[in-house]
Simulated assay, not measured.
Amino acid sequence: MALLAPGFLSLGNLLNILLATSVIGVLAVGMTFVLTGGGLDLSVGSLMAVAGVAMALGSEAGLPWPLALALGFLAGGLLGLLNGLVVVRSGIPPFIVTLGMLSAGRGLALLLSEGRPIYGLPEAILYLGQGRLWGVPVPVWLFLGAVLLGQFVLSMTRFGYHTLALGDNEVAARVAGVGVVGLKLQLYALSGVLAALGGILFAARVNAADPTAGVGYELLAITAAVIGGTDLFGGRGTVVGSFVGALVMGILQNGLNLMAVPPFYQQLAIGVILVAAVWVDRLRARRRT
């Protein structure tokens, strides 16, 4: 990209890549936990829209900005928890449950907002999407903070060890004393909270909560996690790897934009990369066995 696109390696462009990647990267952190635990969450794009709308409606109703933010996080966390409840109580595969929430969440966002973007967010919330700290955009700091905290939790805590064990072998994890039901609920709730963070950052960047925000973002989050080495079938993954995967996608899109490549070719490239990443991952798994 540096050879093909003039200005690609400039500091301003590198910060633009991180900024453009921040929302997808935050979603990828939550997706890493769910995938590593043997689950799947296709609803994160819709949940980020619901969270953004909930936050904007709270602000529009006169709530102080901290309470409006809390409302957005609560909406994402509760819908994520609902995903987990349906998965553990019904026995329906996560693919179907979260696919249903993908549609239901989008409908809820459109219903709450009456199908219109909600403009005019408080300055304190706008700072989260448009402000700069020491010259670096605030969304980048929040993205990096989510990555570092997520990596620590997944690799250094009991919660992370249990998540890896759950994804590797649910029956063995249950026999070993892992609270499988509670852990699954926590994983989907965590994914919902991080989707809410992504929705809040997105809304703050454009100064509007759009009920159509996040369309297709679930696939981008899954792609970032898989490129970073997270196993689609659970038991293996790192948040730092998903960070790298998100950056790979961001660099690809940024470079193609600088080279004036039409957007539909970019979508084609992302699809090819996803299939190639899973294929390479399967080949590596066969070699290990």
Rank of each mutant, 00 (worst) to 15 (best):
G52F: 04
V53R: 13
A54S: 14
M55K: 08
M55G: 07
L57M: 07
A61I: 06
P64L: 12
P64Q: 06
A70N: 08
A75W: 06
A75M: 11
G76H: 04
L78W: 03
G80Q: 06
G80W: 08
L81C: 05
N83D: 15
G84C: 05
L85D: 09
P94M: 08
F95N: 03
F95D: 08
T98D: 03
T98E: 08
L99W: 06
M101E: 15
L102I: 02
S103R: 01
A104K: 01
G105V: 12
G105Q: 10
L108W: 04
L108S: 04
L108T: 04
A109D: 05
L110G: 10
L110T: 09
L111W: 12
L112Y: 05
S113A: 14
E114C: 00
P117L: 01
I118W: 03
I118H: 00
I118F: 00
Y119W: 10
Y119Q: 11
G120T: 12
G120R: 12
L121Q: 08
E123I: 09
I125H: 15
L126E: 07
G131V: 03
L133Q: 13
W134N: 06
G135E: 02
G135K: 07
V138C: 07
V138M: 06
V138K: 07
W141A: 10
L142K: 01
F143C: 12
L144F: 01
G145M: 03
V147K: 11
Q151F: 10
Q151W: 15
S155Y: 11
S155E: 14
G160F: 14
G160K: 13
L164Q: 03
L166S: 07
V171W: 13
A172S: 04
A173G: 06
R174P: 08
R174H: 11
A176E: 00
G177D: 04
V178A: 07
G179W: 13
G179V: 13
V180A: 02
L183V: 05
L183Q: 11
K184S: 09
K184G: 12
L185C: 00
Q186V: 09
Y188R: 09
A189R: 07
A189S: 02
S191Y: 07
S191Q: 05
A195H: 11
A195T: 13
A195K: 13
A196M: 09
L197W: 14
L197Y: 13
G198P: 10
